[in-house]
Design a binder for these strands. Structure first.
Lengths: 205, 205, 205, 205
DNA sequence: GTCTAATCGAGACGGTACGTCTCGTCTTCAC
DNA sequence: GTGAAGACGAGACGTACCGTCTCGATTAGAC
């Protein structure tokens, strides 16, 4: 283990450090091995921790990976670049950058796949990854409305549905580009995507 | 689909029925067990086939599931409904219907997740699922251009990029809606999505 | 018997009961199935033990069977019946009785056959079965010499060779009678054999 | 050997060469791999023959190996060396020489072990190996009686029992020396053994 | 000079056991 | 009293052979 506590003999429990070490070891193993070859025994060894300790804190591989990956998305921010288009491009690029990291790639799709038959897991993903990032859509719209780029919402229910729709489109497109098409969601692509999103098919064609 | 053995004149020929039985058994097991609890031994038993027969034809679980799922997408068609919007709605609804089936749900995301660290697998997915369906985008655009709904393409390279972009958006959005948000991509959602796709964010807000 | 792990201070210790259960299950399976149809998976099941536990302790079927069979020979004793002839008859009858048991029959020849191409296995057999029983020959000779039935050994090297020769003759004859000729090594046969051994061909004919 | 050809009038006749090739390939494989790693598929390949052809002629591995090994023992002869002791030494040395060959070592014990639970196999071994060589004991005794080295048999039943006993002793001792003790049954050992056999324990000590 | 039937090679088939791996749980001992 | 070390029961993995079953292609004797 990467000794955080320098030679504490009298027994300061490293219980606090263990969590961080385990999540870091999980990401490391995701990078090296990918999800399907990652084993909890190996993660425990990397973290310098007994398997028992790991199982005491997480129910299984899926839960552990969700937590390890969720931390990656916390750094997302909505920079104020002055226009709606620029704001969108900024946040999509950030999102793409995170998705480009191998630990995110390897882990995210796999736990989403697992979540299809595991409601608790899907809820965990929704709560710790998806829902937390919808704030970006909300904030972007508010700013655009303040700037006059978008009209105000007449109907709050409709407004919520639109947020979900936009989120599905944005997240879905970036994920599909990155993981299925396996092409980089680079600046050029993000610009084309944003133009399409703002103006629609007719304009882009 | 799997191995090509054109010059195999001698020996007992492979049973054609076994292939179909194995793929059907795979889909059945996907529905009942999901990807992660599906075992090749169980598939073989369901198909009334020996494990060896299965391994003789597929390299592993991933390849098998790709082939089993790919067959589901072959039924996609682009109905001619008279307008671009109606055409899009029609094909997206079909796509959503397939994705709503548990065998597709369970299998598709999992193999995409696996493909992140397995280039051969990604290529197999691309060839047997993704690329085959891009024809729908191409055909839809041709029709719309014939009808005058979309302008002709000035630049063929740009045109190809746009097809890819549209495919990432459409497939990504439906997949995200269905598998991550876990909400049905029903007629109402498809109508909203199509409107957003055609007219852009401004109009939808 | 198997692995020596003298410096294993930590971790859960190996179950002592499992060893006994496995060896007993092995003998049971030898009786029911014979060597060639005995499978380690079946032995593990009979012993109420996981296959891994079995493989953790024995390298394979051969080593396991040697240990299971070796225990049978530990009950051999040299009774003091007053004369050399009677002593020999006594111990040969005991040996024959053990060899008559199906678990010995089934297992012994098979592992000897395997040992022909496996030096480590032959050494294991020699150490745990053959060499341990040579004590009987030595003790019998000492007694006979004390009684004056046999002359003392002039040459210790020659004496050792004679022990080996006698052992090859006695063990070989009983094994051949029991396993190849498939006739019982009963009292009558043992009497004839002992007479031949003591007095030679001329007298017996 | 095995082939039954009572009413085989029509159709392609079985290749005579195949039989010899298969038995030779079996011995070759016994030398290289030993009994337990010998597979019928491999023997078929070595013999340049299809598995089907092999199974058409032999019921299984055991029967095949018995036939392949039995041929080795046909070369045994009883040379007339003038005295009983010399005759015995001669034939025992020949027997030892055959048993020293790896194809005999590997195959013989294994099929004997298998025969313990397979009466048909034991009978096959008895008929094609054991019983055929008892002629040597009979012939040796006749000669010795003609020379006056041994008395004539008063009782024919007793005489048969003595032949069996001698055979068990001789074959058993050589086999045990060669395969269990794994020491060569060389001239010196054969001399000691013959002396013990003729004169008994007392004289040898 | 066909016919006819058993042979041949090749290799796929349904099975069974292999020995390894990982799972998640359970001791045991040392600090 | 916690935690490392590691054995445990369970069960899937992918491989190797088993003995059987198609196949199309010989082969010889019978017609």
């Amino acid at each position: 283990m990467q000794s955080r506590t320098p030679a504490s003999r009298t027994g300061r429990p490293r219980s606090a450090a263990a969590d961080a070490a385990i999540l870091a070891a999980t990401r490391e193993a995701l990078v090296e091995l990918g999800w399907s070859k990652l084993t909890l025994g190996d993660v425990a060894t990397r973290a310098g921790v007994a398997k028992t300790t790991l199982y005491r804190r997480w129910a299984g591989k899926n839960e552990l990976v969700v937590d390890a990956v969720a931390e990656l998305f916390d750094e997302l921010e909505l920079p104020d670049r002055g226009t709606l288009a620029a704001d969108i491009e900024g946040v999509v690029l950030q999102f793409a950058a995170i998705l480009a990291r191998p630990e995110a790639k390897s882990g995210l799709m796999a736990v989403v796949a697992e979540s299809i038959r595991d409601d608790a897991l899907r809820e965990r993903i929704r709560a710790s990854i998806v829902e937390r990032q919808k704030r970006l859509v909300l904030e972007g719209r508010s700013r655009a409305q303040a700037r006059g780029e978008l009209p105000p919402e007449p109907n709050p229910e409709e407004a919520a549905r639109t947020v979900d729709l936009i989120f599905d489109i944005v997240a879905g497109a970036v994920v599909h580009r990155t993981l299925v098409s396996a092409e980089p969601a680079d600046e050029e692509w993000v610009r084309s995507f944003t133009r399409m999103l703002l103006l629609g098919l007719g304009s882009a064609a």
